[in-house]
């Protein structure tokens, strides 16, 4: 790039000034040039260390999303512990399916827990009634 003062009133001494400054820059000693070289390499290494960061960020974010999605799917598909209780296995299929569909209602309900603790008795009572009707 050529200097910009070509058309000034002092092109000769400005050209000489440029030459003198260039000479001083070219004549730097070896120790100074070595320090400049180390500074340049350190600056470039800094950039090299910074480059992978976005890739790792993206990978971490993607892994977190996949894990979150998997947990959500597993939570929706897994029945609650009350519906799979062994005591209900002898109850009629209709009653069992009814309990399964009402898992969340039972968990979130404010009704007395005693009712749910006696479910086994109510299931037996209903079975007795059906036997006597039959």
């Amino acid at each position: 790039m050529k200097p910009a003062e070509k058309n000034s009133d002092h092109p000769a001494w400005l050209a000489q000034a440029r030459d003198l400054l260039d000479e001083s820059a070219q004549a730097l000693d070896a120790a100074t040039l070595s320090r400049l070289n180390r500074a340049r390499q350190a600056a470039l290494e800094q950039r090299h260390r910074r480059l992978p960061r976005p890739w790792f960020l993206s990978a971490g974010l993607a892994s977190a999303c996949v894990l979150l999605l998997a947990m959500a799917v597993w939570h929706v598909r897994t029945p609650g512990p009350v519906a799979t209780g062994p005591a209900l296995s002898s109850a009629p299929a209709a009653a069992s399916s009814s309990f399964s569909s009402n898992d969340m209602d039972m968990v979130s309900s404010d009704d007395s827990l005693e009712l749910y603790q006696d479910l086994e008795f109510y299931a037996w009572l209903e079975a007795q009634d059906q036997d006597s009707d039959g």
């Binding site: 400054l21 820059a25 400049l36 950039r47």
Partner: peptide, 21 residues
């Protein structure tokens, strides 16, 4: 990336002496 780094290195090498002065 290598080309970019080489270009950057050449640029810094080009300006470092004048910058120091």
């Amino acid at each position: 990336v290598t080309t970019d780094e080489r270009t950057l290195d050449q640029f810094l090498k080009h300006v470092e002496r004048r910058a120091l002065r």
